[in-house]
Computed example of a mutant assay.
Amino acid sequence: MNSKILVMNFGSTSTKLAIYKEGVEVVKSSIQHNPEELSAFDHTMDQKDFRKRAVIKWVTDQGYTFEMFDAVISRGGNCRPIPGGIYEISKAMIDDIYTGNYGVHPAGLGCVLAREFGMAYQMPALTAYPPITDEFCDLARYSGIKELKRISSFHALNHKAIAKRHCEQNDLIYENENFVVVHLGGGISIASHLNGKMIDANNALDGDGPFAPERSGSLPVGDLVKMCFSGEYTEKEILKKITGGGGLMSYLGTSSALDIESRIDKGDDYAKDVYDAMAYQVAKAIGGAATVLKGKVNSILLTGSIAHSNYFTSTLKEYVGYIAPVYIYAGENEMLSLAENAFRYLNKIESTQPY
């Protein structure tokens, strides 16, 4: 098939766009939005028309029209929990995204616009393995307080793509293997993959696990409660400390691993301690994920932007190399992963799941 795919991935301050033809990337860009410009919108979902104009201009600037695409696929938004797979973006999915009941992320806007483009130009509007993808085992859902339930909210798209890619490159069958997959980005997620299912993972959006460049991860619960009721912070300010202002940002005032490693190279001992502490916490979480698999781990797979760092990955290997062989697949891989899912659908290799 001579198929052309438009791929969209909306982040908090960026709109990532790509065009793929015959499974090969033709062009890819990341449009960076001025935070001050975005601050004019009271709610993330209010950015729809702003983001739509950016997408239309980019497509036009590349010399394409929407009639030339065979499908559009967006990174998934926070809809209700669903099994992993490819989905046509339906009205019901959009309605769930708009409620905010399952979290709010700019990727939801990508789904909204993908559906609008699909309806306007009569092409499939797709998403695949959204962050809320839920393949948890029942035991993973218990939190310790009856009223609170652990949910599946992590980098499911990249986790699944990297695990499958590792299997393809090593002549393995994903459904027969056990992996611990670690996404090292602005948020950090560690998941236990058991025979083709992601049965447990930390909530990388706003919940638990190791601290990350922009997220606090698990916190001393009692002290957090006291902070919430101290009167010093609003609910919005507390949430910002957890997501966006936590982790490396809280300790060092930056979420850039490159900047922090530069500081370490210049002799900043405090930066080194903080960075090493993040690696320490990630390693502990990998150990926990391996325990969920009862120690039967075929490989540990590291992905995400920080996987480019030899300093960080070498530190992790020192901690967890005894568990299983460690493989590195650096980069986000999300655009390619989305495109691969769209082509599998168009070539009738994989069908869409019902929402």
Rank of each mutant, 00 (worst) to 15 (best):
V59N: 04
G103F: 03
Q32C: 09
Y270L: 08
L6C: 03
Y20A: 00
G321S: 04
N176M: 12
I328Y: 00
E177N: 14
S143Y: 14
K48E: 15
A71M: 05
V26P: 03
K52H: 12
A283R: 04
G222N: 13
C79E: 09
Y327V: 03
N347T: 14
K294P: 03
V7S: 00
R344L: 05
G100C: 12
L293V: 02
D259I: 03
A107W: 09
K57N: 14
A161G: 00
E237A: 11
I5Q: 00
I82V: 15
T60I: 13
I89G: 02
S189Y: 02
I132G: 07
H105V: 07
K348C: 04
G187R: 00
K146F: 13
G321C: 12
Y329I: 01
K317N: 12
Y322T: 07
D134S: 08
G11F: 00
K21G: 06
H308R: 11
E37N: 10
C111Q: 04
I5T: 11
A114L: 11
I162C: 04
E334S: 02
K21N: 02
E340R: 01
S230W: 10
F66W: 09
E135N: 06
I328N: 09
K164F: 06
P124T: 05
L302M: 02
P35Y: 13
V112Y: 08
L239K: 14
I19N: 00
K272E: 13
R53L: 15
F211I: 01
Y327P: 00
E36C: 05
V27Y: 06
K197G: 07
I162A: 04
G288V: 01
I242N: 07
T243M: 09
P124A: 13
F50N: 12
I199D: 00
A191G: 05
E175N: 11
S39T: 05
E235Y: 14
G287W: 06
N341Y: 05
S262V: 08
S189P: 00
N2W: 06
S39A: 15
M123P: 08
Y270F: 13
D259R: 04
A163V: 09
E135T: 04
G304W: 01
G144C: 14
V27A: 10
Q32V: 13
D70E: 09
G295W: 07
E350S: 03
E232H: 11
I56K: 14
I242H: 06
P35L: 07
S74K: 07
S256A: 12
R150V: 05
A92L: 10
T15S: 14
I89D: 00
E147M: 14
G63N: 14
F41E: 10
E168Q: 10
E175H: 13
D95K: 10
Y355I: 11
